[in-house]
């Protein structure tokens, strides 16, 4: 019986007087795709950032592959090379080409040679369909292309877990599809993914579990069919109705 890949135990976090996470607990097995949904300010992004410790938890524990990642003696850089993150605003390194963006981690963090890092970057860019844009700078790419470079950059570290923080929220509607397609590919390749998104049809089709967060708590969780068709809580039902109306 192996450990779950990710175990979150009673994690709480406040910013000043505002409690954004209240005793959140959940687990993910390898290959799971867990989608966090909920109104803005419900703590979804904070939860994601606690996993790779861009944000520190106030209390509670997080384990990755059986290893505790919370706690002062943990090497956060070692943790982060195992956990890829994709940002809402892409955050591509503005001074580097697409290839340079993907190469930097393998080169400086994993210590690959320039040739190896370059080969790996080109492979990853090909996988997200951007082999022909390797020499373009971020400013020369469309939003959808930027986000695909962002995904390639995270994947080049060969992470055990991928975090997606509203990866399509900053995109024009016609560019969302290409990013979701790359993410679907990733699901099929068996990547474990923790995703914050408002793309309900995507969530419905790929999630192994959906968690509805509100006010820093998991209000409801379950497989997509259950949440979408038989939500137990009024709040879940109201949120889902509103968000599907907005996006249809």
């Amino acid at each position: 019986m192996s450990d779950p890949l990710l175990r979150v135990e009673r994690v709480s976090k406040s910013y000043g007087d505002e409690q954004v996470l209240r005793e959140i607990s959940f687990e993910m097995d390898r290959g799971d795709v867990t989608v966090l949904i909920g109104p803005s300010g419900s703590g979804k992004s904070t939860m994601l950032r606690c996993v790779n410790r861009l944000t520190e938890v106030d209390s509670g524990e997080i384990y990755l592959d059986g290893e505790r990642v919370t706690g002062p003696d943990v090497d956060v850089n070692e943790l982060r090379r195992q956990v890829g993150m994709v940002f809402q605003d892409f955050n591509l390194f503005a001074h580097l080409t697409a290839r340079g963006n993907v190469m930097l981690g393998p080169r400086q963090v994993l210590g690959l040679s320039k040739e190896e890092a370059r080969r790996r970057a080109d492979e990853q860019l090909a996988l997200v369909g951007l082999a022909d844009q390797a020499d373009s700078y971020p400013a020369e790419l469309s939003g959808g292309q930027k986000q695909r470079v962002g995904i390639a950059r995270a994947l080049a570290m060969e992470p055990k877990l991928m975090l997606f923080d509203e990866p399509t929220s900053a995109l024009d509607p016609e560019l969302i599809g290409e990013v979701l397609e790359v993410m679907r590919d990733l699901v099929e390749r068996g990547m474990t993914m923790l995703v914050v998104t408002h793309e309900m049809s995507f969530a419905r089709s790929v999630a192994s579990e959906i968690m509805f967060l509100d006010g820093g708590r998991i209000v409801e969780r379950g497989p997509p069919e259950q949440l979408f068709e038989r939500p137990e809580h009024d709040r879940t039902a109201t949120f889902l109705r509103r968000i599907t109306q907005l996006h249809s």
Binding site: R80, F93, L104, Q108
Partner: peptide
């Protein structure tokens, strides 16, 4: 320099000094 640049550098596992140096 946008703060997201440093964050993104840290997120791929660069140390703070590396992120400053390379990003």
């Amino acid at each position: 320099v946008e703060s997201g640049q440093l964050t993104a550098g840290r997120a791929i596992g660069l140390t703070k000094l590396q992120a400053i140096r390379y990003v």
